[in-house]
């Protein structure tokens, strides 16, 4: 019973963290039809930024203030990174075939990983303990970190805020229009470059929050720790129907839960294999995912 509860708790918290990354994928894919391979690495960079900023700020601020300022700076810098990546690597290729943009995304991911390896010297970096989130609590006899409990609620709040933004603001309306039809919305006077930048800003901000929650549960970060969570989150986005935010969240919780269950079973080596098998089954059986809209190809 306790074992089941601990698996459930870790599945919920993993799911929430994946949800925050998956939203970034789903928003970008919805608008640009691009699998942003670099998104997982942006998530990793956010984690590393926190490591370095908390060490740097800690030298002249009190520990609590250092973490607080650090969190805000991480958020701002990650957003800046996401924005810069879009402007530098994706915008020049807007009229190029989709394959070129995807290759560019892979190139950015390669660059971020290599740069992180250079900065860290390839050594695992210890993530700083965040106040409150890193404390232990006992639920039903299972000891866990506060972050496990906080994650689902934080995700719920953020997702509700995001859906409000998309459904009830001008920017949100523009985003929906661009996702529906790129060229027509341009003709209607929507500045698509601003809208696309906005989606990258939102996605990166959520990835930064996700990295704070995710890495609190893990002892250290290496330059490759972004790529697999990124791919899993992408699977979650496809599962829920790409382009749909509630879909991404539901998909992320399913992926997180199944990963947690498999990691607790004797088949733990197959946890990623299962995630990908899930992806392939969905793509073959129901390519639009749980909540996705059907797109017809025009000749």
């Amino acid at each position: 019973m306790q074992f089941a509860l601990s698996i459930f708790l870790s599945g919920i918290s993993l799911g929430g963290q994946y949800a925050l990354i998956a939203i970034g994928y789903t928003l970008v894919y919805g608008i640009l039809r691009l699998i942003n391979f670099a998104h997982g690495d942006v998530f990793m960079v956010a984690g590393l930024l926190m490591v370095y900023l908390s060490a740097f700020l800690g030298s002249f601020l009190s520990p609590g203030a250092a973490i607080g300022v650090g969190l805000i700076l991480v958020l701002a810098l990650t957003v800046a990174l996401g924005f810069a990546i879009e402007r530098a690597a994706y915008k020049p290729l807007r009229s190029a075939p989709r394959m070129s943009v995807m290759i560019s995304a892979i190139g950015v991911s390669y660059l971020l990983q290599n740069f992180a390896t250079y900065i860290t010297g390839g050594l695992p970096q210890t993530y700083p303990a965040l106040p409150l989130l890193s404390n232990n609590v006992i639920i039903g006899g299972v000891s866990t970190k506060v972050v496990t409990v906080v994650t689902p609620f934080l995700v719920a709040v953020l997702v509700i805020a995001l859906t409000q933004l998309i459904n009830h603001t001008k920017v949100g309306m523009a985003m929906r229009a661009v996702a529906k039809d790129f060229e027509t919305s341009q003709l209607m006077g929507i500045k698509i470059n601003n809208v696309i930048s906005m989606t990258f800003v939102i996605g990166s901000a959520l990835a930064a929050v996700g990295s704070m929650l995710y890495f609190t549960n893990y002892p250290s970060i290496v330059p490759l720790s972004g790529s697999l969570p990124g791919l899993r989150a992408f699977v979650a986005a496809v599962f829920g129907g790409i382009g749909s935010i509630p879909g991404a969240v539901v998909g992320a919780f399913i992926v997180g839960m199944s990963e947690s269950i498999i990691k607790g079973s004797p088949f733990s080596i197959f946890s990623d294999a299962f995630t990908f098998a899930l992806l392939i089954v969905i793509l073959v059986v129901k390519p639009t995912g749980l909540f996705g809209e059907k797109v017809t190809d025009k000749v």
Partner: peptide, 23 residues
């Protein structure tokens, strides 16, 4: 199953298969 998919879905599905084979 996989060759029915288009462009980037095909990419991610084959990538997934490579990971499964490795596991």
């Amino acid at each position: 199953p996989v060759l029915r998919l288009k462009s980037d879905y095909l990419a991610i599905a084959t990538l997934g298969f490579a990971e499964i084979i490795r596991a």
